[in-house]
């Protein structure tokens, strides 16, 4: 419409130029840090190439000293010689165990939040938000002292329980949203045909949110996969997680403030990123939806 009212429309390319530039910048900004990480891990240093610093003439003979020497060595070392597979196993076990517990508590609660209009229900939503403001140190130190005493330190169960702090609020919020999306007429129809509360939940409500439950599980998994602080204080040698392995370059140096070998860190960071990105792509359309439905007034 706008262009039609112009007496002389500018060429297509010029009209779209700002959009292209914006997309280029946004793409570079989103993508380049990850790309750099991959390049560093694979020993691909582009700087000397495009700055021209990598080329010189040594007594008249062109000489290349740039950093472009691609190699898979860091990735191979992390996967074969480092303990990356073990870290993946640890993270996965801890996350799955934690998510199962979170679902057991969160599915009924999400359902109640979505369907009941009792007064206390809004307070629970707010309580979960308020609990998110708790500093991890107020949780981790007491858990650490307790875990040492009862033998839960550096165990899968101990870590899974600690991670309930992270996944329970997400599960309750997102699921209450998905339960809210189930049309009220379905519940009414079931009630009028004499179904019990339990039947309504198991036969109607739960199957309707199956996809939502899966999406919530995947998102919670990514959150736990990426968690660093609690893992660094509550795990020992047996239950180290993937994101800890990023900082230690999947080697043994670990937990301290000193970082490990730069290339190894980047290779490990890339390896940790790829599965998380795949999972985020799967659930992307459900993320905003779950939160939107949960916060609808």
């Amino acid at each position: 419409m706008t262009q039609a009212s112009n007496p002389k429309p500018r060429p297509w390319v010029f009209r779209r130029l700002p959009v292209f530039l914006g997309l280029l910048l946004a793409t570079l900004f989103s993508f380049w840090p990850i790309m750099t990480m991959f390049f560093e891990g694979a020993d691909i240093d582009l700087g000397p190439l495009w700055s021209g610093k990598g080329f010189s003439f040594v007594s008249g003979v062109p000489y290349y000293s740039g950093g472009f020497f691609p190699s898979w060595a860091n990735f191979r070392d992390a996967l074969l010689w480092g303990n990356f597979p073990k870290l993946v196993l640890n993270s996965t076990t801890i996350a799955l165990l934690s998510i199962v517990i979170a679902l057991a508590a969160g599915i009924p609660a999400g359902y109640a939040l979505a369907r009941s209009k009792l007064r206390g229900m809004g307070a629970i939503g707010f309580l979960l938000l308020a609990l998110r403001t708790v500093s991890p140190f107020a949780i981790v130190l007491p858990l650490y002292l307790t875990y040492i005493r009862v033998g839960l330190f550096d165990t899968y169960l101990g870590m899974s329980l600690a991670y309930l702090v992270i996944d329970v609020p997400v599960v309750v919020w997102m699921l209450s949203g998905f339960f809210r999306e189930v049309p009220g007429s379905m519940y009414e129809a079931a009630e009028s045909s004499g179904a019990s509360e339990a039947q309504i939940f198991w036969r109607i409500a739960l199957p309707s949110v199956a996809v939502g439950v899966a999406a919530t599980m995947i998102f919670a998994f990514v959150l736990i996969w990426n968690e660093f602080l609690m893992a660094s204080l509550l795990t020992g040698a047996a239950t180290k997680t993937v994101s800890l392995g990023v900082w230690s370059g999947v080697g043994e140096a670990f937990g301290g403030l000193q970082s490990a070998d730069w290339d190894a860190i980047n290779a490990a960071g890339t390896l940790a990123f790829v599965p998380a990105f795949a999972l985020i792509l799967i659930v992307r359309q459900y993320l905003a939806k779950g939160f939107s439905l949960a916060t609808a007034e």
Partner: peptide, 27 residues
């Protein structure tokens, strides 16, 4: 949209690594 979502999947520690002085900022 998928490209713009990439950072969301990055762990915070990965964000710390990706933006390191000798990584992204070096470029």
């Amino acid at each position: 949209e998928a490209v713009f979502l990439m950072p969301l999947a990055a762990a915070p520690i990965v964000a710390g690594v990706a933006f390191a002085p000798s990584g992204f900022w070096d470029d």
